[in-house]
Design a protein around this nucleic acid. Structure first.
Lengths: 189, 189
DNA sequence: CTTGGTCAATACGCTACCGTATGGTCCATC
DNA sequence: GATGGACCATACGGTAGCGTATTGACCAAG
């Protein structure tokens, strides 16, 4: 077929990472998928490892800003931005890729580190929004953690069934965490 | 070395799954680890697939009761049982194994199904405890989801740094979800 | 002490990849 | 229209793992 750029290989690699995990990112199958031979690959990359490194870096650069940037579009109100998170979670970012990255990170310390950095930046942003919403110090920590966990937890349970739909459940969860005052949910006691 | 039982292979397989993911559960490396040859393996199992199936089933049987059973030990009070979850999360169950299972499930529909079943049983238990604590219907759903997500989210962020420690953060999160009334955390409006 | 059952070692062929080496094609430039 | 660089195909040797077939060690029962 046509010629492939370094970027083509990269995106194909990330696709495969999301689908099958890092162990399924192999050069020959990748080549077949792109309708070229590995001759092309080894011109663009020295190594399979080089591809993996590039993939990680590529993701790290995109991942942080993607989430934060989309939240900013929701308006200036921190509450609105926080609520926007549920939409982002279901569309704006590739949950499968996130999970695959995290699984990869369990085996590769370097991956784990950059993953931690991305998490930190995202969490910092969440904390900022929560502070602006008027939560006290400890609550900011806890709610940021819970918000982030909710988004990841949602992705981790594809077979979830319940009376609430997935989207709805996530919406309610965020609502609870962002504005608990006024809807405690207790009926007795 | 000495003879290996079917169970030995199984446990070694699960260990390897937790460490390196399902793609690292291979019979020859496994044999080396157990100080035997694959001759042994192919006596106990017909196939690599047979081992994987057995591993999944083994986990499914143990996993549900393990978590619930430990919660029961905390006493009859649903609140106490709920709070006990944080301890369970950090000790009582193998978080790495859980994550590896979930990653495996992203690629294998059968795995995904049993994973979903286990999740359902655990969530049902959480919902039951939350109902007993007096939460209304929707809140039960949402809080159960958030509790479960918190435990998983904790495992997903090994590099988490914050002023609160990991254990402490999880404690606070559970506290927030189990008894939000009386500690809303808002300081202004 | 022989026999049968249980479990393991060894050897074999096969497939899927990796990485290298070498040559080929296309295209711009002179 | 020759040349050089960018890009790709092909062929090769090497490793890791799968599954099978065969043989062997050990032990209990007869």
């Amino acid at each position: 077929m046509s010629r492939k750029s370094r970027r083509d290989w990269l995106r194909a690699g990330l696709r495969r990472l999301a689908r099958g995990g890092i162990d399924h990112v192999r050069v020959e199958p990748l080549a077949k998928e792109l309708d070229v031979t590995k001759g092309s690959f080894y011109w663009h990359f020295t190594d399979r490892t080089a591809l993996l490194d590039a993939m990680l870096q590529e993701w790290a650069e995109v991942a942080t800003e993607a989430v934060i940037g989309q939240a900013e579009e929701a308006g200036a109100e921190p509450e609105a931005r926080l609520r926007r998170l549920t939409t982002i979670a279901s569309e704006g970012f590739d949950a499968q890729l996130e999970l695959a990255l995290r699984d990869w990170g369990r085996r590769d310390e370097a991956v784990s580190r950059t993953l931690g950095e991305v998490d930190d930046r995202r969490m910092s942003y969440l904390r900022k929004l929560l502070r602006e919403s008027g939560f006290a110090a400890i609550d900011v920590e806890v709610r940021a953690f819970l918000l982030y966990s909710a988004v990841l937890g949602d992705a981790l349970r594809p077979h979830a069934r319940g009376r609430l739909g997935r989207k709805r459940l996530l919406d309610e969860a965020v609502a609870l965490l962002v504005a608990p005052t006024g809807r405690t949910g207790k009926r007795k006691t």
